[in-house]
Design a protein around this nucleic acid. Structure first.
Lengths: 277, 277
DNA sequence: CTAATAGTGTCTATTAGACAGTATGTT
DNA sequence: AACATACTGTCTAATAGACACTATTAG
């Protein structure tokens, strides 16, 4: 058939010409938790943590999963994700970035579903208690040996774990191939999404300022270093850390007192106009 | 309704419970073109280029666009993209990575379509002539001032251009916001996808080995430097470049002769086991 | 005083930038 | 010989790693 114009074509277009599918947006929400130390001198131990919700319906009933939901066709992808964030955390102004789109054929046993995943970073202290009705924070422990990554997730009551095999990239693709080789308690392919988030954050923390999205407005350099350490999963040297971070923070007049040691200056984030994405 | 088990639930699941949509995979295929120099002494000038196809149907009839197509629901996203690559270039073993998923509401005038974009890198010399039936290489010229990026695309017969405004990232999101402010001749939101590819490549060329996907099996360090220069859009210093690249290449016994100057050793890519993604 | 963290100074090793200088082919 | 690129050497500046040393608080 020949059309006279684009509007003529659109008027006759059959919207069901191609088979359709559903999409979801799923969000890996990271934060940092404190465990109060029993030694009055010591700093609170920090844990890197992720927010999971328990499924009450099929499929994967009673399993844990990432906050997410079907794409509302009236919304852009990111707005859909922000709606989910709002529902789960009651917060709007949260750091959110698109991670990766997972399109495996059997991701969802119901029908073909493609999931665009997002990573969100928040300062846990901003949440009010209400969030814990649906969702729970799990501390993250990563154990990487050879090409197997074992991730253990712990909340007060639950302990989940999964193992993923990272196959080395071939020349013709950019990423490791992730294969889930053990997974007791997480729904869908969410272990892969969590791992994608972990890797993204670990990389980006080194060349962007995203870490400050997980910090309170005022913080000590010691706390900030702790956060870097739990995310990078390694110890840092203090003088080097202070040198590197110096351009990104500014001193305030306030001091953190009360630890059994020298008080610490409180800092705040200072954007230095670095536009690196 | 209460279900006895997951399989019971699935047996009764209504696949049309949620409204559905279509997806496409669109591919930004980059390569490097040579322009033969008229001075026998000089090296061939190199251009950074992208492969576009002309649309022969509505919508956006007669406009240029990225190779792409609707998602075949029997295929994974990446396989769908590889099929398109195969159709367009007749090559299979091509570097391909997922870029970003674009979910704007009015991307496509026909219906709601979400596009997962990919970036492919190839050595143009591997293509046989046949590809040029549908597609054409456009050399890329970028002009960035303040927050406006102007991109000019030139083939032998056509000259396209678009302008995009990059709005500075806010704290709550990771990327620049891209707004198309001028676009004569490209279909859909493809200017945004091209820009996303340009930025990704520019970043990744500095910390990965992907550039070698655009190189022939044997190349001189001068040619390799030229490629870095057209992609980064700046001149590099020779000694520094050789130092940095040294770990990624190995000498062969062959020489490139025939230029009106000292012959150059031909190198090949040597993976140094660097696993950085 | 002690334990623990806060914060500074400095030496060294490594890497990046700049540029001069030498080498060698074709016409 | 002249030109253009190929390739090497070296000085300097900037940055990262390592570690010793001082400061300050609660108990």
């Amino acid at each position: 058939m020949e059309y006279k114009s684009e509007s003529d074509f659109l008027a006759h277009y059959n919207k069901d010409a191609y088979e359709k599918l559903s999409m979801t947006t799923d969000i890996v929400i990271f934060s940092v938790s404190n465990k109060k130390s029993d030694n009055y001198r010591k700093l609170n131990e920090k844990f890197f943590s992720v927010l999971l919700v328990k499924r009450h319906n099929y499929p994967y009933k009673d399993k844990w999963c990432l906050p997410g939901g079907f794409l509302d066709l009236k919304l852009e992808l990111e707005d859909n994700a922000r709606n989910i964030l709002k529902k789960e955390t009651n917060l709007q102004d949260i750091y959110l970035e698109q991670l990766y789109t997972f399109g495996g054929l059997d991701r969802d046993p119901r029908l073909r579903v493609v999931a665009t995943s997002y990573m969100a970073l928040i300062d846990k202290e901003r949440l009010n208690q209400q969030v814990y009705d649906n969702a729970k924070w799990f501390n993250i422990f990563i154990n990487e040996k050879d090409d197997i990554v074992e991730v253990v997730l712990e909340s007060e009551d639950d302990r989940l774990s999964f193992k993923i095999k990272k196959t080395l990239k071939e020349l013709t693709t950019d990423r490791y191939r992730f294969d889930i080789i053990e997974n007791d308690s997480l729904a869908f392919d969410h272990p892969k999404i969590i791992l994608a988030g972990l890797e993204r954050l670990k990389n980006k923390i080194e060349y962007t300022d995203i870490v400050f999205n997980m910090m309170p407005p005022l913080f000590t350099l010691g706390e900030l270093k702790q956060v870097y350490e739990v995310i990078l999963n390694k110890k840092l040297l203090d003088p080097a850390f202070r040198r590197i971070i110096a351009t990104k923070v500014e001193k305030t007049d306030e001091l953190q007192v009360g630890g059994g040691h020298r008080p610490s200056v409180l800092y705040r984030y200072k954007s230095n106009g670095d536009k690196k994405i």
